[in-house]
Amino acid sequence: MNKHVGIGFRKDFGTEFIEGSALKPAFVEVAPENWIDVGGFWKKQFRKVAEQYPVYTHGLSLSIGSPDPLDWEFLKKVKSFLSEWDVKVYSEHLSYSKCDNAHLYDLLPIPFREDAVKHIAERIRQVQDFLGRKLVIEIVSYYTPVAAEMSEVEFINAILQEADCELLFDINNIYVNGFNHGYSPTEFIDQLDLSKVKYIHMAGHDQVSEDLIIDTHGQPIIDPVFDLFEYAISKLPHPVPVLLERDFNIPELAELQEEMNRLESICRNTWQHEHALKA
């Protein structure tokens, strides 16, 4: 049984996930944006999922790195969603998806700069105060830096420090970024403030050219990312929940379960002396 490994719940999983037993995660993760203000058929399905599994969340539209003001009306809805479903974790992306009063619905890279650190750290603190919980921010994959004046790892550490938030450690994103920008993922991990890690993401990706990977979440996890995962979790001060993300090209659920089992066994081997994770 999986104690540590959850799955990103997709509508594509259908009733097979809810009624069948092919996929048995330790928890599920959803994007609040996909479920807020939803009734009818999907609300019923969501209720069944939430009755069976602890719910974690990974938001899409907070746009914490945006120059635009925070959207408090939206945050109110997020807050009530988190409380309605007794959500364990609210995570979001360290990127921006809204600018000049227009939503873009995808994750744009933030300039790695000192002023951006201060700006974002202040916003994270405001969100944390409002929600009454820590925000767990994710290292996102990116395809080009924009107007950087510091390194990525300096940027992330500075935000963790100033915002006093937690970190979503996406191992695949670190692998993708290392590949795309020519740095060593293990050295990156060595420099990262791992005391803030609250949660881990694992996923597959698509290599589109000799020197570029696009983070599609549409393939199985590749072996080098499993290896990096093993390396990464051996350095963590304590066990954390691990999520398998699969957003496109969804295979048979049993295949996802196999990937989860492989992650789970790595967790067990690494954390065998630790207490089992409490949901």
């Binding site: 945006s66 120059p67 600018c99 000049d100 227009a102 744009l108 002023d115 202040e122 916003r123 924009v146």
Partner: peptide, 22 residues
Amino acid sequence: MSTHLKPETYEQQSRLAAYCRN
């Protein structure tokens, strides 16, 4: 806008967003 973000950083963010749209 927050007092921390410099106009030149905002400008870079704004240009990338505009590019995505146009």
